[in-house]
Write a protein that binds this DNA or RNA. Structure first.
Lengths: 342, 342
DNA sequence: CTGTTAGCGCTTTCAT
DNA sequence: ATGAAAGCGCTAACAG
């Protein structure tokens, strides 16, 4: 329970040198002889002074080595989502090599202004649920890297959601197919429901809408069409939301031939529900997912989906922030054929 | 890209009041009239001053509202582990209601001293891989709450690992059973292997050893015994480590009748491997897990395991830290019968 | 290479 | 209820 209350000044007096010398010994080796530095450092260690106070350094240097990772939703959900947690892994691994600390910041918080003064930069994973945060991040003087959405003038890491969705849908849909879509965060509702004619969320905000566009293109190309009654909104992949949607769509009269899911978690839940109802996949029902999580590979039958590297998204975003890049990038995705789409 | 460079002092001059008044308007409402405060606040908003600089506040007040969550291993692994991520959920939900920020700190880092000056307290989830961190945390003058291990004089949140392991093992083991154990972090090795006569890690450090004790007690009570050749060390639940151990033990001549696994992730991997080899569970092989994660319930057959509430561990630990409790607690666990243990 | 000094931006007695 | 002033602990000019 010690943790001495030493300050640079006190230590300097005790060692009979100036404060600047102590400071330099710790932060700027080039400013003094190696031997002097060595003796100072060991003297400090002996008396139990472990280096300059970090809080004071943050104020003085204007640099904390803390990076805030702004998550789209609440932290609770994000940490348990396989896609998001893989992303976090990527981020944390590169921050670790750069000796930076990781602060998790919830996208449903009130304002990033309560951390902006003591973090060095932001990585923003998905458009924050609280729109205001997006505006704030856009106007900051500190570095920001966005992922899965864009912010005027900020470097971003994205995938081509429209094209990926198109590709995977194209793989599943056959002529004359009745198609349904289980979408993610399409409208502003906390519950699972068909979208009917609810206004869609801002197009710019939602990767979901790019995916929707891709699905639509595929459907059209197959000579089909889809009404809003056959498009579900699911607030988040986890929990019971997906299950509810799965049951609704499977129990509908005139069950669809193909169901396009905007995440693997949703698709797996649907696959599970279909199994329970004795529906043969892909014989009676084709299913596609999105993300390419490991679990999608282990399901039986394995999911037809599109893979995106969340890990790479994370490492790239963090590296951009570390290096100070200003250019954006669009990562490649890859169709995983699986066996759920005929 | 604005983010005005306003300081309290500048604002005070501009509004023609003293710095103390501005400060009070933001931090101590009781120090001035409501109307005065209101007018000051709105004036500040108008000119774009969003409140006192946080970095300066941290230095001055010695309080940052940042809580460090020290993870046992590297962050990468922790975030992807269902047990750990559930724990994080619990922590973050409580911190969020207390307006505290969450800093993730890896247990394989060099020293907590590089954050101690700017965090208000520590939650330490599992004995840090780097032993030195444990010592440092013990000697700090800031609040520390430990989980799944103890630190002299610090409040802790634990479960009774020995008893839980005993209970679940007792459920599976029958007289004359040949028993094997797939253990987690038993020795100091980065690879999956039988422990043979390697020295076990410090008993105090490892919850695994309490579980081992429980298993041993159950085995003895059934009139059996187990040699170190039948105890595996697995460095972490995820990755291929569990799979390797599963294959080794299943392919051994004289396959065990019962295999006790120190985590559900290990047990599920084992179940999967057994399935691939056409081994009937529980007919030809009984399996037990540990943790009671959701997925253990969804497997076929559902896993016989012992449930612990990682969420509650998280909320409790965070609450202890917020409230400043000094007492420790041992949470209840619960046997989940499942169908993999006869 | 070393020491002196002026702040980084704020909070908080203490006096008014 | 408000204002003046002394630091919180450190760093980086600058001068020696």
């Amino acid at each position: 329970m010690n943790k001495n209350k030493f300050t640079l000044k006190v230590v300097a007096e005790q060692l009979g040198v100036s404060t600047a010398t102590i400071s330099n010994a710790f932060n700027r080796p080039d400013q003094l002889s190696a031997s002097r530095r060595e003796s100072i450092l060991s003297a400090c260690k002996k008396i139990g002074y472990h280096g300059p106070n970090k809080a004071a350094q943050i104020l003085r240097k204007g640099q904390s080595n803390i990076i805030a990772l702004v998550l789209a939703d609440n932290i609770e959900y994000m940490v348990s989502d396989p896609v998001a947690s893989t992303f976090i892994q990527g981020v944390s691994s590169v921050l670790h090599t750069h000796q930076k600390h990781l602060l998790l910041y919830a996208g449903d918080s009130v304002s990033v202004l309560d951390v902006v003064d003591f973090v060095d930069g932001f990585i923003c994973y998905g458009a924050p649920q609280n729109k205001k945060l997006g505006e704030e991040l856009g106007a900051l003087s500190k570095p920001v890297v966005t992922v899965d959405f864009d912010l005027e003038g900020r470097p971003a890491v994205n995938i081509d959601n429209e094209d990926a969705a198109y590709q995977v849908a194209r793989r599943a849909i056959a002529k004359e197919d009745r198609v349904a879509i289980l979408g993610l965060r399409l409208i502003d509702s906390p519950t699972t429901c068909r979208i009917y004619d609810s206004p869609l969320l801002d197009a710019e905000q939602a990767i979901s809408h790019r995916r929707l566009d891709g699905y639509m293109r595929a459907i059209k190309e197959c000579g089909g069409s889809i009404s809003n009654d056959w498009i579900w909104h699911i607030p988040e992949s986890g929990g019971n939301f997906s299950r509810q949607a799965a049951r609704e769509v499977l129990n509908a009269s005139q069950r669809p031939d193909t169901i396009l899911c905007m995440s693997d978690m949703i698709a797996l839940e649907l696959l599970h529900a279909a199994h329970e109802l004795g529906i043969d996949v892909p014989g009676e029902l084709k299913i596609t997912g999105f993300d390419g999580i490991d679990e999608a590979d282990r399901s039986r039958p394995p999911l037809t989906t599109v893979y995106q590297s969340s890990l790479e998204k994370g490492t790239l975003a963090a590296e951009k922030l570390m290096v100070g890049t200003t250019t954006s990038v669009v990562l490649k995705t890859e169709i995983k054929k699986g066996e759920t789409a005929g």
